[in-house]
């Protein structure tokens, strides 16, 4: 079965990102396919490669990158939400004339249409948020 996942909260502040991670991990183990993980609202902050959590804590952005690498996940940050919050990839850096980018490995920035498309294509849609 194809699952679409929407994550609406940033890392560390709220359990939503952790819950979504555990859910996705279990779904993959059970043989399901993750159609797309879409990050919205402060959820886009999951995609920063500049986070440095204490060593005894989980590294949430790295954990997403590693899971995506292992299972070929499509991790999408909403472009409008990302622009508001300063999440930048190379394309956005050039387009908006910024002096840096900060997106972590395996994440990409795209439009809200990707969320709607997940709603259309996935068999199940689940949201983790506040």
């Amino acid at each position: 079965m194809k699952f679409g996942v929407l994550i609406n909260e940033g890392p560390y502040q709220h359990q939503a990102s952790d819950s979504a991670y555990k859910f996705i991990e279990a779904a993959i183990e059970e043989g399901h396919e993750i159609y797309r993980v879409f990050f919205y609202h402060d959820g886009v902050n999951n995609g920063t490669r500049l986070a440095t959590p204490p060593q005894d804590d989980r590294h949430i952005p790295n954990r997403w990158s590693e899971l995506a690498e292992k299972h070929d996940l499509d991790l999408v940050l909403c472009v409008a939400a990302a622009q508001r919050r300063g999440m930048v990839d190379e394309g956005e850096m050039e387009r908006n004339k910024k002096d840096a980018n900060n997106i972590a490995d395996k994440f990409r920035i795209s439009g809200l249409g990707q969320l709607i498309e997940a709603g259309i294509q996935a068999d199940r849609m689940i949201t983790f948020g506040d």
Binding site: N8, Y40, H41, A80, A81, G111, L112, G113, L115, I116, E117, G119, I120, D130
Partner: peptide, 30 residues
Amino acid sequence: FIYVNRKAPHGTIYAHEALEVVLIAAAFEQ
């Protein structure tokens, strides 16, 4: 599609950004 809005405006951004989803969704002819 059904968009269920349960949060007040202004105190947080949820309502505002939810409306942005609806506007984009409209273009998908759903």
